[in-house]
Amino acid sequence: MTSATDPAVDPAVDAQADVEPGGRRDGFSWRGLLLQPVLVLVALGAFAVWRATADLTDAEARPLAWSALLGSIVDHLELVAVSAVVVLVIGIPLGVLLTRGPFRRATPLVLGIANTGQAAPAIGLFVLLATWLGFGFRSAVVALVLYSVLPVLRNTMVGLQGVDARLVEAGRGMGMSALAVLLRVELPLAVPVMLSGVRTALVLLVGTATLATFIDGGGLGLLITTGINLNLDALLYSGALLVALLALAVDWVGRVVETVARPKGL
């Protein structure tokens, strides 16, 4: 039921861990929050030192020039950002809608379809979309959105469903409109779970966006494929390392936001 190509932290895993709520958070405390960026910075520093001192062939040096690298990273982040915006715009309202009265019945069906769809390998999705919409950025974004909307959708729904029904009733009972209860009670209480879904989606996007290179979508994946195809190890490792660091950095930012945005009093 989880992701196919990218193994990013998935709410499915979180859901299993929910057997003991808080277990994850305990294991990943502030110490963990500090460790992660240090790890990323050290690795980045090591990379910079290697890049500055390494003896590279011309074919390797050109894509590994700082400006070229920066361009690849920006391309990659562009894929991630555009897809993420679309994912949020689709996933959150849809998740809210599917937890409202009449649509609630459709919830298991939608989740079932979405879960089955998640078993599809991302690379297959990319190629199929390319045959349909052609190569390029647009197809890549569509594939990425299809692929990463589920965690946001699911966590929005799980988060909202997890709000104590008595609190909703208390809100309605004191005369708050359905919209007011949603905005002032349900969504704030669902924020931790929803944000965890957003972080999952972002990490998933960073990883999956490496595959965009197969359909000319650009990004850091290009370094990896070029490295493999042309047997240029320096490119391959640079690409792989930078993607991994980027994913870890995005994950860390997500965790920080989760910790900060967690409503007080919970």
């Binding site: 190509t5 990218d6 790890l39 960073v206 990883g207 999956t208 690409g239 792989a240 994950d251």
Partner: peptide, 17 residues
């Protein structure tokens, strides 16, 4: 948690060495 963050395509690349 951190291991699951690393993109699989990246890890595959790193393992080629």
């Amino acid at each position: 948690a951190i291991g699951l963050t690393i993109p699989s395509f990246a890890l595959l690349g790193l393992l080629l060495a």
